[in-house]
Write a protein that binds this DNA or RNA. Sequence first.
DNA 1: CCTGGATTTTAGATCGATCTAACGGCGTTA
DNA 2: TAACGCCGTTAGATCGATCTAAAATCCAGG
Lengths: 350, 350
Amino acid sequence: MAILWCEEMSRQDQKRNKVTLLDVAKHADVSRATASLVVRKSPLVGTETRQRVEAAMRELGYVYNMGAARLRAERSHTIGVVVPNLTNPFFAELLGGMEASVGAAGLVMIIANSGDGPSRQAAVLQRLREHGVDGIILCPAAGTTDELASQASGWKLPLVQALRHVTDELDYAGADYVAGMEEAVDYLVSLGHRTICFAVHGPIHSAYRERVQGFRDAMKRSGLQPELVIRVPDRVDQIAQEADAVFAQGKAPTAVICFNDLVAHGLAAGFYDRGLKIGRDISLIGFDDVADAEAMRPRLTSVSTAPNEIGRRAAALLLDRIARPALPPRRWINPTRLHIRDSCSPLSSS
Amino acid sequence: MAILWCEEMSRQDQKRNKVTLLDVAKHADVSRATASLVVRKSPLVGTETRQRVEAAMRELGYVYNMGAARLRAERSHTIGVVVPNLTNPFFAELLGGMEASVGAAGLVMIIANSGDGPSRQAAVLQRLREHGVDGIILCPAAGTTDELASQASGWKLPLVQALRHVTDELDYAGADYVAGMEEAVDYLVSLGHRTICFAVHGPIHSAYRERVQGFRDAMKRSGLQPELVIRVPDRVDQIAQEADAVFAQGKAPTAVICFNDLVAHGLAAGFYDRGLKIGRDISLIGFDDVADAEAMRPRLTSVSTAPNEIGRRAAALLLDRIARPALPPRRWINPTRLHIRDSCSPLSSS
DNA sequence: CCTGGATTTTAGATCGATCTAACGGCGTTA
DNA sequence: TAACGCCGTTAGATCGATCTAAAATCCAGG
């Protein structure tokens, strides 16, 4: 007896006193199978039995073991999210939106960082595969090729692209960068600006190309010089230092459109340092409309891309595809909106 | 023959043509156990055999099944991270730091959002438990009580607190908010300021209390009025609107210390709107020193708390504890540093 | 040639859930 | 009365890895 007890204790210790479905079943005097049906809220089980089992679960402090369930059922209730960079507030907003959708559906997110490089991205995708995720939301790293589509279909793993896309064969959730940029240009043109510069930075990917394309198309449509695209550094303090770059090519622009709000922030600081007053000496438009746009002085006019909403939509797209894998590829392009504040003014004197 | 083939195909289809360790073993002409030793890089297996198995893995496109491994081995190579809020760039930095440490150790992070509320926090903790995480990094939601410690030990789940703490019985990684605040006060005092206000917002938790305490201690030590603590709204645009609140109590302060950089941003905008020039009419100090501090004009003097580093340390603490659960509780308090820029100036006229 | 010890390899049980196919009880119909 | 369908329940196989304990192999020394 004493020996038996010892053995039981050591077993408990070894197993970290885990309560299994079998324990619950015994305690409620039903079979393992019935208990399983109860935890999964199956309608097959009788009301009285259900209540007895639920009571047993509560009494024993049972916690469901997803790992074991996954092994048998091929569903992990887990999705993978790969972004190029965690620290960027823009991606943080995106993740926030995803978490809302994904969490509401009862799944959890594994997040991974690709560092915006294809080799690291391949490694993290492999890792997610090993963890048996039910699907992946990927913001493709710069340099990702369209063989991503064939890989994903070979893996039989639902995959949606977010913010950037490299293939039409997979779902995609992003913003209408082209239209957003056109709206920004048209607005400046309506204020009388004729020499408009586009300040870009960062790695080159679909969202980058679409913004450039939107800028050029709109400039051409207005009969203006479409080639005034200037690259600036990545860090905000360096952007400020090298703000002059904007004036280095040909005629000095009277307005600058920025690749994102970070560039706008940097240029605003740089212009300030040079004694240029934004909204009077030069007009400035940002892109993304993150929270800080409201805090700048003068307030920054910016094209809103609503990363939160894109995240939500990307998650919805993925959940749909997990439910019906054979669906044809879909895309959800979030409309953008020019949020007009105080950083632009009509061109008065030239 | 044809029938057999069909059967095989349908099995493949059903199983999503998954390659298992048994397939690899057969292909390499060894046992399942040996193959398992190879994937886990055990030194027990001979060189020639190892190579044969590795070749088989490559040829068949084998992917490791963590789920199955976890079931047997009680290690999921997964940790859970709970933050109050994904969208805050501060937490984004924290996550970035964690990801670096955790990823390097070969684990992945499941992230969850507590919404800074204890009930939702309880739900996500339960969810993480169901997913069998090896440990949890938790930034305790406002209102979390110290029974967290007994819960965690009951769950036998390694848990480290990050940024905020509710108990001494669990590991903790945070910043030295008290010292940081004292340094800020002392700096302003050394510039001649005597009436200094502390502008706070957000929910109340240990990090909040420590900052207030640091402020009051330092003010008292300098013989100054320690009660000038003012609450401002949460959103940056509302902070700007209500910046006057800073002057509403007693004598008007000549310097303001902010709870974080977001408050500093809002107040800076509000002061600008009222024609006050920062660094001349009023001095301003931020807290956290996130990227934007450098982009403000004038540049924002701010107390750097290095969330990235805290994230890295929290992860290291957790990995240590997973390796040796019996370790006494430890804490890592990141030193803060006052990053002096241009938003403060000596008090000349009064 | 046999023995002992170290090194490699293996069969079989096991983790905790889900799934399949079947079972008993009950009311209905032929 | 036998046959049938329906409902709630269940035993036993199964998922893909790991672990344990023992077996096979090899080599040196007596």
